[in-house]
């Protein structure tokens, strides 16, 4: 998971040393220092990006070697109902994960911010899902939902509800996979939101209460704005995590049933690597669409939501 964040304005720099070799030596040192990072990212992020554009315009032989120029053919292949569905699944998945992955930890972080015994223990417990990798969470939840032992189905039966086939019913599979991802991100998000809530100045809350703002009112008009930087950070990082999730659909449903959980990243994996499909051109084109979707969502988030964020 990575996060996009613009730099603060106007870097403040203490005056740097200009003794001895002076400017040249200093610049050389700077170059030497940025070089490892720059080379690493240049070779494995920037250059591959250019190569992805090249590959997306190449047709390949059965082994996947790019052999002939096909122009925008792979992109034209994306204007199909199948790819439309993939985009739709990606957006539904992302929406469920982001909304649920923010609301659920918030509903825990707010009561946890009270001064009561045991809150630290609860907070630590709630962050545990953060320890799970995509494949570990996928396999554990497959067992949680396996009809032969499912505690979830058992609970539902107690309540008189017949459990669906979580990962094989076409209406449920995507919801199930999204729910598991939401569970995974809730741990880290709780950590960030709880830290935001802990940073609220108690005097502000006191002042708000004297002015008559309590309960929901206090939460919406005082607490939410004050933790808006944490909230925004959580929304941006969760969106990226959701967009980039492979393990959950690959482990739990393998994109199925009937492609119902095939998201953009799953489709890239499927076209390029699954069963040695080696369809590198199409996978690269889909990768560029993923980049575009990510950038678009970031523009929307930074353009629309960040304006309401109150940085202190």
């Amino acid at each position: 998971m990575t996060s996009a964040k613009p730099p603060d304005k106007a870097p403040v720099t203490p005056p740097s040393a200009t003794r001895g070799g002076g400017r040249v030596r200093e610049n050389l040192l700077g170059l030497l220092f940025v070089l490892p990072g720059l080379v690493g990212l240049g070779v494995f992020v920037i250059f591959p990006l250019v190569q992805a554009v090249y590959l997306s315009m190449m047709g390949s032989d059965i082994l996947g070697n790019p052999t002939r120029f096909v122009g925008f053919q792979h992109f034209a292949e994306l204007f199909t109902p199948e790819f439309g569905n993939i985009l739709l699944h990606t957006l539904i998945f992302t929406l469920i994960v982001v909304v649920g992955g923010v609301v659920l930890p918030m509903s825990l972080a707010v009561p946890l911010s009270q001064k009561l015994p045991g809150m630290r223990v609860f907070r630590t417990l709630f962050t545990l899902p953060f320890a799970y990798s995509a494949s570990a969470a996928g396999v554990v939840w497959l067992l949680m939902l396996d009809p032969s032992m499912s505690p979830v189905n058992w609970l539902l039966r107690l309540l008189g509800v017949v459990a669906p086939h979580w990962t094989t019913d076409s209406g449920w599979a995507l919801v199930t996979v999204s729910g598991v991802t939401m569970w995974m991100v809730s741990g880290f998000n709780l950590l960030v939101l709880a830290a935001g809530l802990a940073g609220i100045d108690e005097e502000v809350l006191e002042a708000a209460r004297i002015d008559g703002a309590t309960g929901i009112r206090q939460f919406v008009s005082v607490v939410l704005p004050m933790i808006s930087p944490s909230l925004f950070f959580v929304i941006v990082t969760t969106t990226l995590t959701a967009l980039q999730s492979l393990g959950q659909p690959q482990v739990m449903t393998d994109g199925g049933p009937n492609g119902d959980t095939s998201t953009l990243v799953y489709s890239i994996y499927n076209q390029a690597f699954h069963n040695n499909n080696s369809n590198y051109g199409l996978a690269s084109a889909q990768g560029l669409v993923l980049l575009l979707v990510g950038v678009l969502l970031a523009v929307v988030q930074f353009g629309v939501i960040e304006r309401r964020v109150h940085y202190r």
Partner: peptide, 26 residues
Amino acid sequence: RTPVFWLFMATIMVPYESIVVPNALF
């Protein structure tokens, strides 16, 4: 300094999965 910083920041926006194919081939 500023252009190099922005170059680093720009790489954050590239989802790893977008470039996984060229990287695997490389």
